[in-house]
């Protein structure tokens, strides 16, 4: 593994030992199966203990893990006949956002997603998943098409936030995000939003007005990055750990707050450990939710979506 998180060190040390034993056993022709099994069990235990007790900041780190599968991975593994569609028909094609049509369980769907790169080079090209207005406008275009052809929309969320740059402001970042939210609120086909990594701020919400909001076990979703929160409220961006706790950013927090509807389990050690299993689990959750939504009349669907977002923040009748 090229990128090991600080708190994963104990696991990594065990894994290095296991690898050494394997190599030694192979080269010298000595059977070390028992020793290796013991160490493997130990590694599993340690991983279970660590991953069962993650704090909010550790979750942020996993959500941002450079090896965490990006939206393309899920698209490739979950959809057949996927055709990527490009451009907003106004300005350009934003590589931070991907979208297209394909089949899910044989059923035609529209997919929109934020797209982080898999390495530095790709991340530079994809602007680290931080979209410009044209990215949101591409998604809006595809969602309206989905409505026209009565296809459900699957939206993957994975962005630190909308890009804060000059061009983005000149071309109406605010307007693009607002229109995306409006488009989703009014869309007459089922929408499932899945947070697969980092859900950052308005840029994430632009794909987040779904009939169902699913979050992977170690995904996070917040109004601003913990660093931003710490630096604005406490004038100290190094207090990011505290900020992550204070803001309630984890999937578990959001389920409790009624923002997320369901947590999609990840393989032990995070989605990047076993991406295929992770994709399988996302697929199962999508299937179950889509089956519930497909039969619902469009008027009722939109009315229910309205009710859902209308009640956001009204916890236990906090308001009157």
């Amino acid at each position: 593994m090229s990128a090991t998180l600080e708190f994963e060190r104990p696991i990594q040390e065990l894994e290095i030992k296991i690898d050494e034993l394997r190599k030694f056993s192979r080269e010298k022709g000595i059977d070390l199966t028992n020793e290796i099994t013991i160490l493997e069990n130990r590694a599993r235990e340690v991983r279970g203990a660590i991953y069962g007790n993650l704090n909010s900041w550790q979750k942020v780190l996993i959500a941002r893990h450079p090896e965490r599968p990006n939206a393309y991975y899920y698209i490739k593994n979950l959809f057949t006949d996927f055709i990527e569609l490009h451009g907003d028909r106004c300005f350009r094609d934003d590589p931070s956002v991907a979208g297209g049509i394909g089949r899910f369980n044989g059923y035609p769907v529209t997919v929109i997603s934020h797209l982080k790169g898999k390495d530095t080079k790709e991340n530079l090209a994809r602007n680290f998943g931080m979209a410009h207005p044209e990215g949101y406008r591409k998604a809006i275009r595809l969602m309206k098409q989905a409505e026209k052809f009565k296809r459900p929309v699957i939206a993957f969320i994975d962005t630190p936030g909308a890009y804060p740059g000059m061009g983005a402001e000149e071309r109406g970042q605010s307007e693009a995000i607002a229109k995306s939210i409006l488009t989703m609120a009014a869309l007459r086909v089922p929408i499932i939003s899945v947070v697969i990594g980092e859900g950052g701020s308005g840029g994430a919400l632009a794909f987040g007005v779904g009939d169902r909001i699913l979050m992977q076990e170690h995904a996070v979703y917040s109004v601003i990055t913990p660093e931003g929160y710490a630096s604005i409220l406490w004038k100290d961006s190094s207090r990011n750990r505290e900020a992550a706790e204070a803001m309630k950013v984890t999937a578990q927090d959001l389920l409790a707050l009624g923002v997320a509807d369901q947590i999609v389990p990840e393989p032990l050690g995070g989605a990047h450990r076993e991406p295929e299993t992770a994709a399988d689990l996302v697929g199962k959750a999508l299937t179950a939710n889509l089956n519930e939504l497909l039969g619902i009349d469009a008027d009722i669907l939109v009315a229910n979506r309205y009710k859902k977002f209308r009640a956001m923040g009204n916890l236990d009748g906090l308001i009157e």
């Binding site: 409006l182 919400l205 917040s222 923002v259 309205y306």
Partner: peptide, 25 residues
């Protein structure tokens, strides 16, 4: 902007108000 002290719940107010505007529309 959003009131950060209320975390994700403040972000959701964007969706809440916009969805209401759709009714007005």
């Amino acid at each position: 902007g959003a009131r950060m002290q209320e975390g994700i719940l403040s972000l959701m107010q964007m969706a809440k108000t916009v969805a209401a505007l759709d009714k007005l529309e």
